[in-house]
Simulated scan of single mutants.
Amino acid sequence: MKKIATVDAIGHVICHDITRIIKDVVKDVAFKKGHVVKKEDIPVLLSIGKEHLYVWEKKEGMLHENEAAEILYEICNNENVKPSEVKEGKIEVIADIDGLFRVDVKKLDMINELDEIMIATRHTNYPVKKGEILAGTRVIPLIIEKEKLEKAQKIAGDMPIMELLPYKKMKAGIVTTGSEVYHGRIKDTFTPVVINKLNQYEISVCDHKIVNDETEMIINAISELKKNGADLIVCTGGMSVDPDDLTPSSIRKSGAKIICYGAPVLPGAMFLLGYFEDGTPIMGLPGCVMYSNATIFDLVLPRIAAGISVTKSDISKMGHGGLCLRCTKCTYPRCGFGKGV
């Protein structure tokens, strides 16, 4: 920091806020710390009594906060995002599409362990809308050693630490199992819920089959949906461990490799996920999906919609944060449910 005449300050960076006070009219910050002085600023500065300024003295190996913020943004920058205007060493990362937001949490933690810089993000695997803020980057001091930003770049490596994946254009087939629905004894209230959730991720329903509690009928329905080009198959009904609930065993017999039957999430413990050899996912949904606002289906579906292959390990990690608190007014996804991973 050095003191110079205001008339010689063009192009220099102010090191402190400068307040303007006009009695009974205004009291505010006329120029913020970090402002780069322009020619038109000189008369204003002189009018508020600033004949001298304390400015940042450019030194080798040091960066202004805005220069450093640009570097932090590039560590985050990837397809389908855009930056806010850089201001006071801060840049926000903004979604340019609807999609699934994912973060390399390990690298993020390592970068935030460095002094005087920070990156704050939404939770990883978070479904977001275009225009929403995904992350904020900030440099703490006005000037910072370039070496610290180089360390952050080294941690990030060749790939940005976050990504925003667009949802795939998918067609879903639905199999509703249950003699009570098959014989028309009750109205099917499950399928409309599933269709609504699928539509949130641009997944259309290409076919819907209602079957009795019979293994062969369930298998045939699944096979027909797959043969007719369904990119995703969703089965409802018959998902418990009762002897006459045959959906899990029928899914297995249909040729799908079961990733999990049972998950550490409430609601949603009886969830089933499998994949066919060609990568087509199939899900068995427990009854809670029909009447609970947020379940494991809401945690898994955005990943499936974005083309992510969900593993057994992914499901196991959902136990941390996998307890819904059943709030009187549900605010999901703006809550802690499912945000452990």
Rank of each mutant, 00 (worst) to 15 (best):
N80A: 13
F297H: 01
K39M: 11
E113Q: 11
R185V: 06
V29G: 08
I161Q: 05
C15Q: 02
S250Q: 10
I91A: 02
L108A: 06
I315S: 12
T236C: 07
K3C: 14
A120D: 08
K317L: 15
P248G: 02
H208T: 15
H123Q: 09
K197E: 09
A221G: 11
G284E: 00
Y201L: 10
M162G: 02
E85Q: 05
K329Y: 06
I133G: 10
I91H: 06
R138N: 15
T311K: 04
S179C: 10
A120N: 13
G287H: 01
V103C: 03
L114H: 11
F101T: 06
A135N: 00
D244C: 08
D213E: 09
N66W: 07
V300N: 09
L272V: 14
S240T: 15
H35R: 00
V36K: 06
F271D: 01
S309L: 13
V265H: 06
G131L: 00
E163R: 13
C327V: 00
K312G: 10
C288N: 01
T311I: 12
P160H: 08
D24E: 11
P160W: 09
I22A: 03
S84A: 03
I22P: 08
I174T: 08
I186V: 13
L46Q: 10
I219A: 04
N77A: 06
N112R: 04
K82S: 04
D109T: 12
D213T: 07
D28I: 10
